[in-house]
Amino acid sequence: MSAVANTPTTGRKNYVTAIKEALFEEMERNPDMICQGEDIGILGGAFGATDGLLAKYGSDRVIDMPIAEACIVGSATGLALGGKTVMAEMQFIDFISCGFDQIVNMLATYHYRTAGEVNMPVVLRGPAGAYGGGALYHSQMNEAWFCNSPGLKVICPSTPYDAKGLLKGALRDGNPCLFFEIKELYRKREIEELLPEDDYTIPFGKAAIRHEGTDVTLVSYGQNVYHCIQAAAELEKLGVSAEVIDIRTLVPLDEDTIFTSIAKTNHLIVVNEAPMTCGFAGEIIARVAEKAFEYLDAPPIRITRLDTPVPWVKPLELFVLPSVEKIVQAALKSVKF
């Protein structure tokens, strides 16, 4: 279980290719693994993440499911009860609401209810996030619902390397995992990178520092990490040194890396594209307030989506979402407090 970057493969890989490689490799090493979801077999997935799986592993293990998310989750629970490891794809993470009861009441609590007799190696993964004009039902980040449901691990990678390593880790974890993939990053050229040829996983609960700084800490995950990195560059020009932390997993959360950073910077901005009220940014700030209050020289600030749905056309969408500019302004306000 090490994250050693060995000899790179020849080409740089994009995010969705990293997901796909993780699925192929785990299907190969675990004959008890099953993939199921809407259009994942014959079509190869709406975004191509499962392209070729059906041809290689057959229809017993790669299942095109009816359009019925609750059944996709419930049957995944049954497969796990029968000894299988399951990857169940939500075609868009927005659609996961149709399977909500089966996730939070059946799947998430199974290990608890059985006092540990039954493990649930089930990974629910799907494309998430806004900024693509997907409108209300193809843009959501609903991770907070699941962070508030004990028994689920919640993961949100921002790079191809993380996407592959975290997904492989999730498929071996033995607990139900909610895996939020950022569809706007799937084929983003700028973030393509070389991936290790050797098998690797990334442990949960270990944040990554994406940019080092001394004046303000910007904590985020998913595509907002890139907004934070751009904001750090802008702030640099203004003489403010920002540290960018990508938490990578929400449950479990790496508090130590955050606390260590604000011990140094004394200023905290948390950015997520989910709505503000009861969002994960609020959780991070609550933990800092409880456990690391003395490090802060200014009130922490949340930059999140407004408490609105995600509207369709570009000006509306960008208006409600976090932006580089909003982050820069918040950071300046914080350091000048």
């Binding site: 419930g74 049957s75 629970t77 049954g78 497969l79 009860l81 029968g82 089966q102 009441n105 059946m106």
Partner: peptide, 22 residues
């Protein structure tokens, strides 16, 4: 193991039987 959400074990039973058949 059932929950209070009735009929909620039917998909679990179906997935379990899929696994058993495999």
């Amino acid at each position: 193991h059932s929950t209070s959400m009735l009929a909620g074990t039917i998909p679990v039973a179906a997935g379990l039987m899929y696994a058993d058949r495999l």
